[in-house]
Design a protein around this nucleic acid. Structure first.
Lengths: 180, 180
DNA sequence: TGCTGACATGTCACCATTGACATGTCGCGG
DNA sequence: CCGCGACATGTCAATGGTGACATGTCAGCA
């Protein structure tokens, strides 16, 4: 299960409570890579603790428990990351929607593609603005994770934008040719 | 459920049997957007037929049934594609692995990043080769789907490659600074 | 003719995930 | 000091997907 390793990875960067981990999944992590709700995180943390891959290092207010990875957990994470990059199972509704646009008639397809092109341009611009503000964060710090995500996000938006623009041009050309 | 609309979309482009649909999910569709096995496809086709969104248009050898979308199915697909692009749930183990690299020590991280950079470069090159060979396929044909996927795939690979190269440079710079 | 591999569809038990529901704490502003 | 919103964790029924198992057909080849 990938959730196992997502949690190990987050805790390897910085010890956190289940609540904080839940917040992480609502940010860049959940947006680009893997999403999970608190209802799967808490039971998984208990399972990880039973297996000795994480441990409770601190109990705070309101019953909060701070977890940290054990050396065994770190080894497990490392092993997983170095394991042959098996064909990962992909589930991405956005990309599915993009592809299925070709099943519509060209007029509808153009409307949707133009919407995608605009939204991805805005998304990329917004991320670029955030990026310049956080340029001095070191890679290996807890905040380095957000840096990685932002850099990935910008390239992701640009890729989809470029794709949409290409598709629009191609469709328009074909429509023009069909009219003559 | 997204599988519903994935099937409607594929059948809207070209009537197919469950077996052929299964093959589609093993290609670009399953790689970039949404994956499904035959064990979920066949029951879903039956459900779609019951709801009148698809119908059997032909029965062939070995009990094969060819399905096609009905006007109702086409309307449902169109409605879904035009619906507000809700926050799609993302599940991508590859991207998760990329992000979790920052949880490793820099030496290990560099090894993995270099592997990613190399594999994505190869992937992009390979797709570019396929692309020039299929440049004359019309967008709206059944093969247009593959064209869309190839163009998306190239940009996707390039994005990840560029990200990996950026991460490598950044990490190397930080390591050099730490040594002095 | 018999074998093999691709074609073709199906069931079912198991597992992970989700959404609804539940419960209680703490800090802060009015 | 009261109430609200964020903090913090949890259960559980329903859902959706996976992998194992099952069955049979047809074409081509030896």
């Amino acid at each position: 299960m990938s959730l196992t390793h997502a949690l190990l990875g987050l805790l390897a960067v910085r010890p956190s409570s289940g609540y904080e981990l839940t917040k992480s999944f609502e940010g860049d992590l959940g947006r680009y890579a893997w999403q999970a709700g608190h209802t799967s995180i808490y039971p998984e943390l208990n399972r990880l603790a039973e297996r000795g891959l994480v441990e409770v290092t601190h109990e705070g207010a309101r019953g909060s428990r701070t977890y940290a990875v054990t050396p065994e957990g770190r080894a497990e994470l490392r092993e997983w990351l170095f394991a042959p990059p098996r064909a990962g199972r992909v589930r991405n509704e956005q990309v599915l929607r993009m592809f299925l646009i070709s099943a519509l008639d060209p007029k509808d397809a153009l409307i949707l593609l133009r919407g995608i092109a605009e939204r991805t341009r805005e998304g990329a611009d917004e991320l670029r603005r955030i990026r310049v503000e956080n340029d001095d964060v070191p890679f290996t710090s807890p905040e380095g994770f957000g840096l990685l995500a932002a850099e990935f996000g910008v390239r992701q938006y640009d890729a989809v934008h470029s794709w949409a623009v290409w598709a629009i041009e191609r469709l328009e050309k074909e429509l023009a040719r069909a009219q003559t």
